[in-house]
């Protein structure tokens, strides 16, 4: 199995889906001649031409809505947001139109569209460019939210997202684009709504997604293993729909849970997970669910502050010690 960078896995998914289906087009800032701000769309303009790989002006609201309109009429747009921070400008089109068209038309219309781009901290970019916003979109009925943490998942999930009949929020990670991993070749999809156990374990369940998987949770699990703690790591991959079965089955085995998320703690995906777990697995829990989140402040620029704001293996181990009632 070839090893690929996360960005190249996404590029393969786009390229394969565009070759397979003429209805698929890519639109966004710098996607065509510049080959993508993060080079995800490298070479696609040459392969598919300027009607299918479209450089948009810096008008996030406008081109997000243009994509929705094209999807209403039978195309399958992939709208690249240079980062999810900028998509805040497009939220009206995503939330009020894409997410509600099926519903307010009483099932007459559908909106098969993918909004994709990097989320999360970018590395010394300060507050406006370092936000993990998936919880915002997961809040709205009518959207599916996907956030892959590995190159293989990125490819398989993007292909599924493009084939889905619904609007998909596809959150990549700025700091993952260069990360490498094995990616199966050719036709290959991963179903939306299926979590993946990235590390099986017996003692505690760590639930996470996107960049936190490799940046904090798997390293924490390795450190814990050295201390004789066998952590199970669940990578949600899909935020919505949530894979309740995989989560509940793991909690029943380990009886202890720590949720790790890059975003802020208030009304987050972790809050939703905690509610689900205490409600559905109350009798299986040996300790209250703990959360390790980004601190409830905007991201700072200074290197030490930026590190302190994000979840770290150290903070995860602290939380694991708490749910194991184990002295740190």
């Amino acid at each position: 199995m070839p090893e690929l960078a996360y960005r190249d896995a996404l590029n393969q998914a786009l390229s394969e889906e565009m070759a397979r289906d003429p209805r698929v087009f890519l639109m966004g800032e710098e996607v065509a001649r510049y080959n993508g701000a993060y080079k995800v769309s490298q070479g696609l303009l040459d392969k598919f031409g300027s009607a299918r790989v479209v450089d948009a002006p810096i008008s996030e609201l406008g081109f997000a809505g243009l994509g929705v309109g094209a999807a209403m009429l039978g195309l399958r747009p992939v709208i690249e947001m240079m980062t999810w921070n900028f998509a805040i400008l497009a939220m009206d089109q995503i939330v009020n139109n894409a997410a509600k068209l099926r519903h307010m038309s009483g099932g007459q219309l559908r909106c098969p569209i993918v909004f994709r781009g990097p989320g999360g901290a970018g590395g010394r970019l300060s507050s406006q460019h370092s936000q993990a916003l998936e919880a915002n979109y997961a809040h709205f009925p009518g959207l599916k939210v996907v956030a892959p943490g590995t190159p293989a998942d990125a490819k398989g999930l993007l292909k599924s997202a493009i084939r889905d009949e619904n609007p998909i929020i596809f959150v990549e990670a700025e700091l993952l684009y260069g990360s490498r991993g094995d990616v199966p070749e050719g036709e290959y999809t991963i179903p939306i709504g299926k979590a993946d156990i990235k590390r099986p374990g017996r003692d505690v369940t760590l639930i996470t997604w996107s960049r936190m998987l490799t940046a904090a949770v798997l390293p924490a699990a390795e450190l814990l293993a050295q201390q004789g703690i066998d952590a199970e790591v669940i990578d949600l991959r899909s935020i919505k729909p949530l894979d309740h079965e995989t989560i509940a089955a793991s909690v029943r085995r380990t009886n202890r849970v720590v949720v790790v998320e890059e975003s802020w703690p208030f009304a987050s995906v972790g809050s939703e997970l905690s509610d689900f777990i205490q409600r559905e697995c109350f009798d299986d829990l040996d300790a209250p669910v703990r959360r390790v989140t980004g601190l409830d402040v905007p991201m700072a620029y200074a290197a030490n502050l930026e590190r302190a704001i994000q979840p770290s293996p150290e903070r995860i181990i602290e939380a694991v010690n708490a749910v194991l009632y184990r002295p740190g």
Partner: peptide, 8 residues
């Protein structure tokens, strides 16, 4: 914007 998308 939707109308532009339909025209697109």
């Amino acid at each position: 914007p939707l109308a532009a998308g339909m025209a697109f």
